[in-house]
Nucleic acid binder design. Structure first.
Lengths: 340, 340
DNA sequence: ATGAAAGCGCTAACAA
DNA sequence: TTGTTAGCGCTTTCAT
């Protein structure tokens, strides 16, 4: 690797002059010298060593991203949003992928081992002089990890610190639950079934709260027979569909697209026409929802926005909303599985 | 940020001693001094500046990854494979995401603007002293970009340099085409329809070649009425299905899962039972294929392996196979859409 | 057991 | 217009 020194030697000037010329300082050298230096740099394929530069400048212009698992479906878009904002602001991003899901499955979350791993990862990032960190969860869960005496801003994205000690950016699950329910009510459904995820899930709780709120606001009696709990997998949608449909619901709101797909299947296997006899809603706007037949109505999570907002807070140390938690609105997509 | 110097001052020793102690050099200091230094480091939350260290050591232990688009479905797993191998070898990875697909769509590929962007990205990585680069395509396409006088190894993953000047790692599309066809033949299909992608696509050409080879090896006449060309979208599968089925094929091999889904839909809409009256195969093993009803038989691309192999070549400057192109075998998954 | 000194590649303040 | 000097934080001889 060619260095400034070498160019200086060949051009017969000092390293300082080369540095100045290469950095475009006006009047750093005579036109001839300037050209000579530039020519040498090109010929020798000179590349600055950004780390030497940063060391000297005392500023890294870099932030760190920690992902729980890059291969879980929502993560890349969040990361993408972070990168997007960074490049707009002239920042670099370093990505640390913990590969949690692949390595440990779901039970690992918020365990001491998990906290330990985060600590190690944070330290690693800190050694690289990052000026802030965004932590990207692979689903919305509570995470009580608090880095001890963190010298840089730290924001959770797509997960949250239940103890509210660190800012988080999430989608507004409650509002989404409300919106879908209100939409179905507006379409004259009075008996709306819900297939939740496990009750322990934050998203389940929030969406369910939104559902109840919408019923209340429209003077519809809440009926707990209409609320059942699945496990986010397609199979549970298939199994729970009859429970709801036999008790007379005219619409089913499943809390993810996979379970909604299960409902669609059950309907078709048993003579109910999705989108005609029964309206079906999913959640997540996964690829499968648009691909399915019929296409499944769903709710899009503002992933890019979550990423952008999180890094925005980190960099601008900006307004962090009430309780340090920011909720971004989701977008409802009506498709054939629910259109009337 | 605490520095070694500061600790040295507080402990009343030299920076060299602190460095040695912190790096675990045996006999660097007396036990008491040692403890004092370690204690101070902990108390002051000391973190090494890895860049200062690297500058001094003259080695970055870092490789660069360039992705065409991180959010396109196959990319994260390839990246994951790269990270996995790196962490095994104690290497760091820097990710540069060009966001091509999101920003420009498909026409951008291999255009001068694209080459310019790659050049810029490579330069960027080089400034960070990477010791090698893996370039990850978002689909298998030719890319004629050759970095001029690259000082570090450069490998294409999931795309290839048609001029064979740089090594590439790909899946073996031809073999996959052969395997699926042979499997169908073995299941007594003699009239096998194919829905390709556009003929300009490398994967299309390869898989089609494999298809023909399998027919040939089993003494089945190739019939070009059985080969049609779609656009990778579900709709084209739906439209082309009748073209094939009405001419009497008993099996349809679509070159991606989306188009296979379209075939399934058409069959169901017209009284053909997928997996019974007609066998349907897709390609890619996307989430949708397993989610569909019936589940779609498909071919899994060894994404993780492609990533691992690519970085392996970069780091070990290892055996780069014939023509510098390495083909990794795919895995066939038989599911309900084709089981007999 | 401990430290002084040199230097990695670069930039910036100040001189000349 | 050009150069000298100093130093970013760290590691590594080589002395002591």
């Amino acid at each position: 690797m060619t260095t400034i020194k070498e160019i200086a030697r060949l051009a017969g000037v000092s390293a300082a002059t080369v540095s100045n010329v290469l950095n475009g300082k006006p009047g750093a050298a005579s036109p001839e010298k300037r050209n000579e230096i530039l020519g040498l740099a090109k010929k020798l394929n000179y590349t600055v060593n950004v780390f030497a530069r940063r060391l000297q400048k005392g500023k890294s212009n870099t932030i760190g991203i920690i992902t729980e698992d890059l291969t879980v479906f929502n993560t890349p878009d969040i990361v993408d949003g972070i990168y997007e904002y960074c490049s707009e602001k002239g920042y670099e991003a370093i990505l640390e992928n913990m590969r949690l899901y692949k390595k440990f499955g779901s039970n690992f979350i918020d365990s001491p081992a998990h906290h330990g791993l985060i600590g190690k990862t944070v330290k690693n990032l800190l050694e690289k002089q990052v000026e802030g960190i965004v932590y990207v969860g692979y689903h919305c869960h509570d995470i009580s990890y608090i880095p001890r005496s963190l010298p840089v801003p730290f924001v959770y994205a797509y997960c949250y610190s239940g103890n509210r000690l660190l800012p988080s950016v999430l989608m507004d699950d409650r509002k989404a639950g409300y919106d879908v329910t209100a939409l179905l009510i507006q379409q004259n459904h009075r008996n709306i079934g819900v297939i939740c995820g496990p009750l322990s899930s934050y998203s389940t709780q929030q969406r369910l709260a939104g559902y109840r709120e919408a019923l209340l606001n429209h003077n519809i009696q809440y009926n707990d027979k209409n609320v059942v709990f699945g496990d986010w997998e397609k199979g549970s949608g298939y199994e729970l569909a009859p429970v709801l449909l036999k008790s007379g619901v005219t619409a089913v709101f499943a809390f993810n697209d996979l379970m909604a797909g299960g409902v669609v299947d059950w309907c078709r296997d048993h003579g109910f026409r999705p989108g005609v006899d029964v309206s079906i809603f999913g959640f997540d706007n996964r690829e499968v929802s648009r691909f399915y037949n019929p296409q499944i109505s769903t709710v899009e999570i503002p992933l890019l926005g979550i990423g952008r907002r999180a890094i925005e807070i980190v960099l601008d140390t900006g307004a962090s909303g009430e309780n340090g938690t920011i909720m971004l609105p989701c977008m409802v997509h009506e498709r054939a599985s629910s259109k009337r």
